[in-house]
């Protein structure tokens, strides 16, 4: 466990969750260990993800995000350290990997590249069938999952997945993972390569999924704006290590730290920081546009009553 997480003098940092679905203890992963091409992807990561949490994992390219999340369902084994998923320790030989994969659904980057069946319905059915469900249950889950991602099962079910648009294909792939009804959903850059409308749609689906199904979600993302808007807690990876693990608001008020790592700050935070640097005493822990508007208006009103200000161009 991270020593910071328990320290009482950092009240803004998320408390250690006793009811952790995923627990990583000092996990390291080295690719091609012992060869000249050896590279350390993840180094000494300790992390607990509690039931029902909505965690964002961010970090620059090559920071080990994708490698880390592949440990969450046993696709990768740690080179050292332990990963415990739903009480099952994955480093032991004979660990029940199937149970773990059932608990944790992992959606890879560009998941539409894994579609293979002749029809959308059969592709979504692949996961549930592998779980050994009978046909009736499988069909029910397919319908349910397609509805969840906003595709009409009647209309899209019989179509070929390869005849769909990019955004639709991605939603079919997401439905394919959802149909397995995982307790934890790990999404690795689910919006990469989509246009702003497609992006918004996917993320809104994720959000409503969280609200309706109460599942734990881990969102790996590049865009700070999305993470700031959706997640309650942010884990920043940098060069394979956890650089920051904090509730969203606290994380983005540490803007300098993020910039140091080479990450963008959400545009709203960025604006507030600039205003502050320019002399307007706004609070910087606002995350949405609406909050920022209120904050700026409040500050300017306060400023106007206290004395005339030069800078009023916001």
């Amino acid at each position: 466990m991270s020593p910071r997480a328990a320290s009482p003098d950092h009240p803004e940092i998320a408390p250690a969750n006793a009811d952790a679905v995923i627990a990583c203890e000092d996990v390291s992963h080295v690719y091609q260990a012992g060869t000249p091409l050896e590279s350390v992807a993840v180094q000494g990561v300790s992390l607990r993800i509690g039931r029902g949490e909505f965690v964002g994992i961010v970090g620059p390219t090559g920071s080990g995000k994708s490698t880390l999340v592949q440990h969450f369902n046993g696709l990768l084994r740690p080179t050292s350290g332990r990963v415990i998923v739903a009480g099952e320790s994955l480093d032991r030989r004979g660990a029940d990997v199937r149970k773990v994969r059932r608990t944790v659904g992992l959606l890879f980057q560009y998941p539409e590249h894994q579609l293979f069946e002749e029809t959308v319905a059969r592709d979504v059915a692949f996961g549930p069938r592998n779980l050994g469900l009978d046909e009736e249950d499988v069909e029910e889950r397919v319908t349910w999952a397609l509805r969840l991602v906003g595709l009409d099962p009647e209309r899209f079910g019989p179509r070929s997945p390869f005849s769909l648009s990019g955004g639709e294909m991605r939603r079919v792939a997401i439905a394919g993972v959802l149909a397995m009804k995982p307790a934890v959903l790990v999404l690795d850059e689910p919006t990469a390569g989509l246009d702003p409308v497609g992006r918004r749609e996917i993320l809104d689906r994720v959000q409503s999924l969280r609200a309706e199904q109460k599942i734990t979600i881990v969102l790996v993302a590049h865009s700070m704006d999305d993470v700031a808007r959706l997640c309650e807690r942010i884990v920043v990876l940098h060069q394979g290590r956890v650089a920051l693990d904090a509730p969203t608001r606290a994380a983005f008020s540490a803007a300098d730290r993020l910039r140091e790592i080479g990450l963008d700050v959400p545009r709203v935070s960025d604006l507030l920081w600039r205003l502050r640097a320019g002399g307007l005493p706004v609070r910087t822990d606002r995350l949405t546009v609406a909050e920022a508007v209120d904050e700026i208006a409040r500050t300017m009103r306060a400023g106007a009553s206290g004395g005339r200000r030069e800078r009023g161009d916001a």
Binding site: L75, F108, F126, M180
Partner: peptide, 13 residues
């Protein structure tokens, strides 16, 4: 490798 992992994540044996 990527596709194999993706299908394994969907329970492929």
């Amino acid at each position: 490798e990527k596709i194999m992992k993706a299908q394994m994540a969907r329970g492929a044996e």
